[in-house]
């Protein structure tokens, strides 16, 4: 039974981004469900647009600047803006930082998008783990994940452009929280290697090599599943893996919600290429 939550209600406006909203629906749904279980309310940013992704800054720097600007202007005052996609996070936060630093850019922003909110806080989904105590959200936390052997995968999310180097580093966050819920953490040395993002489409061979390397190293180290923090990584690890009898790839948010007792997860697993159900059953999580 769930304890009455000790975490007081927190409210965020939420920027899902295209990877979550238009493809990784199981990731979005499990984030919402997990947040509800820890007393965090997410309000989707009204009418948000694409952050520009890799393509805008690759070929059109004006568009790469304008797309995040509009999103920043939509953020409601007095509420932190939460982003779940590491790539969107960099685009939004770096643009915000540049506007703050440059008078010229600020003027341009205000001409096009209105008053600039100096106090807007843009935070990643991982930020909430600093403010909540996972162990307090559930009874017998150490038994919840029943020693499932997980290999956490961060992809490139821990790497930032040098001008954002002094922000927070979340290295170890997945390990710490999954361990506190009873998982066994597998170290395999490839948890921070980029998944290849769009090379998956334009250079599938390169993406395949990168993905196979990550998954095979995790398997060699004894992992039963990989846990991802980014929807794009999840997609690439699933579609570009050519290893026979590969292990399932789960979203961090899926495993978290299940550990906290979320039962409404039937729609998540049919969307996975390697079916995680046999593993979850074997570990008594289903």
């Amino acid at each position: 039974m769930k304890k009455s939550s000790k975490n007081s209600l927190q409210k965020f406006s939420f920027f899902p981004g295209c990877s979550l909203k238009a493809s990784g629906h199981e990731n979005t749904d499990s984030i919402y469900k997990f947040c509800k279980l820890i007393n965090v309310e997410l309000v989707e940013l009204d009418d948000w647009n694409c952050c520009g992704s890799s393509s805008a800054h690759s070929v059109d720097r004006e568009v790469a600047k304008n797309l995040p600007m509009r999103n920043i202007s939509l953020a409601p005052k007095g509420m932190p803006l939460m982003v779940a996609c590491p790539s969107c996070m960099i685009r939004l936060q770096q643009t915000y930082l540049h506007i703050k630093q440059s008078e010229k850019l600020r003027k341009e922003y205000e001409e096009n998008w209105g008053t600039f909110d100096e106090n807007l806080k843009i935070v990643h989904f991982f930020e909430i783990f600093e403010q909540i105590n996972l162990e307090d959200s559930v009874e017998n936390p150490k038994e919840k994940l029943n020693k499932i052997k997980v290999a956490p995968y961060y992809g490139c999310m821990l790497y930032t452009p040098p001008d954002m180097r002094f922000g927070k580093s979340y290295y170890g966050l997945m390990e710490k929280s999954l361990k506190s819920l009873g998982a066994q953490i597998i170290e395999y040395g490839y948890s921070t290697q980029c998944c290849g993002t769009y090379l998956s489409v334009a250079k599938p061979r390169i993406a395949q090599n990168v993905v196979n390397r990550v998954i095979s190293k995790a398997m060699e180290a004894g992992a039963e599943c990989i846990v991802t923090a980014c929807s794009m990584c999840h997609l690439n690890l699933e579609i570009r893996c050519t290893i026979k009898d590969s292990i399932p790839v789960l979203h961090f948010s899926e495993l978290l919600s299940m550990a906290l007792g979320e039962k409404d997860h039937k729609k998540w697993f049919p969307r996975h290429i390697v079916d995680p159900i046999p593993l979850l059953k074997k570990r008594g999580l289903l």
């Binding site: 295209c18 909203k21 238009a22 493809s23 647009n49 694409c50 520009g52 992704s53 890799s54 393509s55 805008a56 690759s58 070929v59 059109d60 568009v63 797309l67 769009y198 090379l199 489409v201 334009a202 250079k203």
Partner: peptide, 20 residues
């Protein structure tokens, strides 16, 4: 790779979001 980027931006210009 360039074509891929152009197609991504075309859907963003049309819908405001990417359409994979």
């Amino acid at each position: 790779i360039l074509n891929f980027h152009k197609e991504v931006l075309k859907t963003v210009e049309k819908y405001g979001r990417t359409h994979k």
